[in-house]
């Protein structure tokens, strides 16, 4: 017993001495930085993505983790693997753990409707990324899907419409048709094409986000419409298949493929460079990761504000990538993001 006490006393005095020496070289404080670091330290952020293991969520996570590590807070992930039910359980689990900020990546617009207010009433601030539930949280970070659809449609009008000298025949190879982003995007397509009657949509098919289906659908469409001018895709992963069919048919010069996605190098720039995609709208995951970090840090610093007091949104600026403006920085890779993202 005695020995133990002695050791404890020694340790305490050593700690005191260390603390004193640490205090003697206090870093420069510009008036905000000290409290900035102080407030963020030890905070807890929770993140429920749709699923880990695909470029968007891995990219965001890389950014989040880098910043959290640098500033001394934690980001915990629970991975529901595309399952709504599992996602709801994961969110409920997090609410019970009471983190400071909860980041949600909704699969649809309703599932989290009750959960967002529930989390806020527990004092947790909620950020939604890339798709919004009907209920607003404290922040939204992500693309404006209507704008995305609108710009993609305008791009194909530019390539096939009145001023291009082409016949205006296009096909749409869309994703799982009931997904909200697809629904919103389709509304934008319709609005644009309503203003451009010269555009003729010869086929509109869903490929269910499956590149293999996209390929077979596209190859059939191309057989039927050998004079097709353009194809409108909705997600790079699936459009890979569309592009493969176009390439196989040897119609890469004729058919203008517009795609969109998070701007991963392998999915986007490589394909633009090879000519598989003629135009690509990116919502730029590194930028989103930075926005996400900004939102997290803002909410963590607003310690005296109740959740829901000042909701804000950070819509992602969309970036058009074509062969002409392609540069080494147009796209990103996960390795880069893991090193320096956020």
């Amino acid at each position: 017993m005695k020995a133990m006490r002695l050791i404890a006393a020694l340790a305490a005095s050593a700690a005191l001495a260390l603390g004193a020496s640490g205090a003697s070289s206090e870093p420069y404080n510009d008036g905000q930085s000290a409290s900035y670091y102080e407030v963020l330290k030890g905070k807890r952020v929770a993140f429920v993505p749709l699923s880990m293991g695909f470029d968007l969520t891995e990219g965001w996570n890389a950014g989040l983790q880098n910043q959290a590590e640098a500033l001394g807070y934690t980001v915990d992930i629970r991975d529901p693997n595309w399952n709504v039910e599992a996602a709801v359980q994961a969110v409920n689990g997090f609410i019970a753990d009471k983190p400071d900020v909860l980041i949600l990546h909704p699969l649809d617009q309703q599932a989290y409707n009750r959960l967002v207010p529930k989390a806020q009433s527990e004092g947790i601030k909620v950020i939604q990324i890339n798709l919004k539930s009907i209920t607003n949280g404290d922040a939204y970070v992500g693309a404006d899907w209507y704008e995305m659809g609108y710009k993609q449609a305008e791009e194909i009008v530019r390539a096939c419409g009145k001023d291009s000298g082409n016949n205006g025949k296009i096909a749409i190879v869309t994703g799982q048709a009931s997904t909200p982003t697809i629904v919103i995007g389709n509304m934008a397509f319709d609005d644009v094409f309503a203003q451009h009657p010269e555009i003729e949509v010869v086929a509109k098919q869903s490929a269910d986000f499956d590149p293999a289906k996209a390929k077979s659908v596209t190859s059939t469409i191309l057989k039927q419409n050998p004079d097709l001018c353009g194809i409108l895709g909705v997600w790079d992963g699936q459009d890979q298949g569309t592009a493969a069919a176009v390439r196989e048919a040897g119609m890469q010069d004729q058919v203008y493929v517009v795609s969109s996605g998070g701007g991963n190098k392998a999915a986007a720039c490589d394909n633009v460079e090879s000519g598989d995609f003629d135009a690509y709208y990116s919502y730029d995951v590194p930028g989103q990761a930075r926005d996400l970090n900004a939102a997290v840090k803002i909410l963590l610093q607003q310690t005296d504000m109740e959740p829901g007091a000042a909701p804000f949104a950070l819509y992602t600026p969309l970036k058009l990538i074509t062969k002409d403006n392609l540069s080494p920085t147009s796209c990103w890779t996960l390795e880069e993001l893991q090193v320096s993202g956020g």
Binding site: N83, L107, D108, Q110, Q176, T179
Partner: peptide
């Protein structure tokens, strides 16, 4: 009633 969700993945699996 609980989720009011009409997602495509409801009931899968």
């Amino acid at each position: 009633a609980r989720l009011s969700s009409a997602g495509t993945d409801v009931g899968k699996g």
